[in-house]
Structures are given as C-alpha cells and as structure tokens.
Write a protein that binds this DNA or RNA. Sequence first.
DNA 1: TAGATTGTTAATCGATTAACAATC
DNA 2: TAGATTGTTAATCGATTAACAATC
Lengths: 222, 222
Amino acid sequence: MASGDVIPQSARADGTGQDRLSLGVAARLSRYLQVLTQAKKMGKETISSQELSDYTHVNSTQIRRDLSGFGKFGKRGVGYNVDSLVSQIRKILRTAGQHNIALFGAGHLGKAIASSDIFADHGFRVVAIFDSDPAKIGEKVGTVTVRPAEDLKHVVSEEDIVVGVLAVPGAAAQPIADQLVEAGVKIIFNYSEALLQVPPEVTVHTSSPAVDLLYALYFYLT
Amino acid sequence: MASGDVIPQSARADGTGQDRLSLGVAARLSRYLQVLTQAKKMGKETISSQELSDYTHVNSTQIRRDLSGFGKFGKRGVGYNVDSLVSQIRKILRTAGQHNIALFGAGHLGKAIASSDIFADHGFRVVAIFDSDPAKIGEKVGTVTVRPAEDLKHVVSEEDIVVGVLAVPGAAAQPIADQLVEAGVKIIFNYSEALLQVPPEVTVHTSSPAVDLLYALYFYLT
DNA sequence: TAGATTGTTAATCGATTAACAATC
DNA sequence: TAGATTGTTAATCGATTAACAATC
C-alpha cells in the first residue's frame, strides 16, 4: 500500500555472479564507496580495512570479509589501492555509469542539492529541475534551467531519468510523486517529511536526518 | 583515529530498564517515530504494524516484537494508538525533551535546514546559525540571526548545545568540526562530503544521500 | 459473532567478532 | 628480516520470519 519496498532474494556474496547482493552487503559497499571517493579526493593512494572501519563504523573484519567475497583486492601489509577498489565496488554494484536524475523544487534545498558535489561524485547528474511556482520558471540553477511541472513526463522519457528527487514542502510531495510515477520514474528520493503512497514497483527513500539525530542522541544520553 | 564511533553494549530489549538498546533496535524505534509523527500530522489515530511496515520497510513481525519488549502498547484487532505510541517511544529513546542545535553555514543548505520542520518535529531547535562569511553576519534566517564563527564557543555553553550541524562546503568542514569539538559539542551532523577527524568521544554522522541512492539503484538495476 | 491484529514462540539465517596463518 | 595487514575460519549472537493462539 505504501512505498515500494526493495525485495531482496537470498544472495551469495561470493562473487560467483548472478545472485543479488543481500541488503546489508549492498548498503555497506555503498558506504565504502563514499569513503573511498572522498579518500581519493584527499590524495590517498591506499587504505586499510581499519581506516575504512574508522570512517564507516563497520567492523574491519567485516569489511575484509565483504570485499574478499569478490576477489583478492588487498595487499597484505599494505591495504587496498583506493583507485582500484573504487572501480571494483562500482563494478559489483553495477553503478559504474552515469545516471540522470530529475529534481523537483527550486527552493533553498533544491538549489543546495543541484550545486553540491554529493550526487555528482557518484555519477548522478541533475539534468532537469522543475518547480510549480511560475516565478521560478526560466531561472538558472547552475547550468540547468528551471522548467514547469508540465514538462515532466516529456523530459523523463527524453532524458532517460530513473530517479526523481523531491525537494518540496511536505504538502506538495504526494501530487508530485504521483506525477513522477506516471512519468515512469522508478526511484523517488524524498526530502520532504511526507509519507508517500506509491505502487509497489516504485522505491521510495525518505531522507531522515532528524531520525539519525535522535538515534545519535540516544547513545549520547545513555 | 577517525570519527567517534558509537560503542553499544549488549542490550536487552525487554524493557527491564537500565541496559542500552542495541544499535538496531534504537535505529528502528527512531524510524517508527518518524512515521508516527507524520501519521499524527495526517490525522491518523491508530496504526497497525503492517502499515508501519509499509512505510519503514521493516518486517511487521519485527515491529511488534520491538514494541512488545517494552510493554503491551497495541490493541488486538485494532492496532496501536498513534499518540500514545509516540510518547512511549520517546520515553524509551529518552528523547522526550527539547534539544538545542547549532547550525554552521547560512547558504542554501543551511537556510533549507533552518526553515524545515524536519528537525523541529522531533524536538530539535536551531538556536544559533554561524557563518564565516562577514557579508552574511546579521542576516536573519527565520527567527535566528547569523553570527560570526568567533561566537561559537560562547554560544555553545550558554545555550546548552549538544549537536552541531555542518552545512558548509567540504573544504571548510574540518576546521569547523575542530572548533565544535573544542567548544564541547558531542554530536556532529555532517552534511558535507568531507571525512572528519574527531576525538573518540565525539560522534560524527555523515549524511549520504548519494550512498542511499546508489543502494536503491542497485536493486533497481538487478 | 466474525474479522482483524497483536503478542509470542520456535526455527533459520545472516551478521558479527576474535583469532591467526599467510604474505606483502 | 620485522612489522603490518589481508584473507579466512570457527564460534556466537542477534535479526528475521512464519505461524498461530489470544483477544479486541
């Protein structure tokens, strides 16, 4: 009834191929990738499982285990080569390519997202920005021009967009989600606080910084 | 060496009291809280474990299990009362009160955060905003005036701030994190892509929307 | 009552960790 | 060589799930 869940099958993390990764392995590999991407920017050439552990809060044994399931990527006594580990993980996650995303909402949040490196670093490109406020149409955000909501369907198919990002107020989120679904978007990234109703084949990820904060606070308070 | 990790002890989720919750239970309870808060806004009075499951992507049996460890909060055949479940979970997470947060960076992202309900809904109040750009000092963001970085230490102790939120470019993040640590902040919420080095008693949470997206994409692509 | 949903059990599966030989 | 760190094993612990009696 609600957001389309990701239904994983049992997975073998042994690198033998066709099976899906388990939810946990896929999530952790994504996190390693984030740290590695950043480590690369900082000019780091190798990284140990212990360093990765410090940054991801994942046990170092588990990191070595996760990685060794797909090959012998490390050098004993040295660690992992950052560059080659990045490409290995990208290959495993099959996210080596470029992916186009559409952003909805050209307010402060939308502008922050469009101008940040966060998505760009991982191969996501904001190729279209929409807003329902006529005053914002035509405005430039970075190199992209804000378009009216009516263009959505057309742009989604034209530009091969699979991810829609909602940077709008909670009250506006559901109607836009409906439009995205109708236009064929399969992944919705929801930055509003609204709970979205979508068909089961669509995945909704709701960003929840306050939830993360509550969680961090619990361990601080106890 | 890196971000301070949260080191949980073994926990009994049986409501008998003093022990810490496990990482998993605390994380899930936080997510239930987010959904319940939103459901309440939408005027919902009761909610079933199945509905909670639809929105959180957590198995409904596990939700009932998580909750029943602390008491019999539900009514068979009916579900859980939203209001009372919110206060029960707040009690369990010991986050029933107000918490003050300091925000660093008055750019698009900072403004988006300060004006959103996301933190406010969960009892977090942005009581101070800092920026290192002299041009921004004195500017109003919502009801809060942007202050110079020099005020940081003074404000943190004055206003009883435990959480610092970084909404600054990656290159600026580490020096500000250092200042926050020096001022006594114990939880840093990092919206930049930088990897932060902090002492072990400080918890860093790095927001990683692109990582979440990579992860969602993997399951879409396979 | 009939239908729905909780609370709980029992069985399984995956995550986690310590330890250490292999080896760079 | 000596030190460091991987790759891997084995043992444990917690998460997950199906199933169903209890009961609203």
